[in-house]
Amino acid sequence: MEYRIDVNEDNTARVVFNGDITFSENVAFRQLLKDLSVKDLQSCVFDLSNVDMVDSAGLGMFLIAKEQADTGGWKLSVTGAQGHVASMLKLTKLSDLLQG
């Protein structure tokens, strides 16, 4: 998994992911959350268009991000999920929780 953070002038951000988000990406994902925590964000969108695969640990990491957003007072949403990723979000109803 790789990611790129784009922050706009109005303090909205977009994180573009590339590659699988699975258990083994846990360290990289925590680094991302750290990177986000030092920014003064209004909202952040996780762009999953280039992600083919997310496992249950990956979904857990989204939940941690969501918690961080709620605590930090910013909005988190996901976009662009397709195929396996979209079905996983739907199956676990996390798509409702992470709606824009």
Binding site: L91, T92, K93, L94, L97
Partner: peptide, 28 residues
């Protein structure tokens, strides 16, 4: 509660998936 959708196989081998959509336990 979000488990992979179980499969029912008919005697003729037709497949249908059960609707196991749901929030996993432990979140909300």
């Amino acid at each position: 509660a979000g488990a992979p959708r179980p499969i029912i196989l008919s005697t003729d081998g037709d497949v249908r998936l059960l609707d196991s959509v749901g929030t996993p336990l432990g979140i909300i």
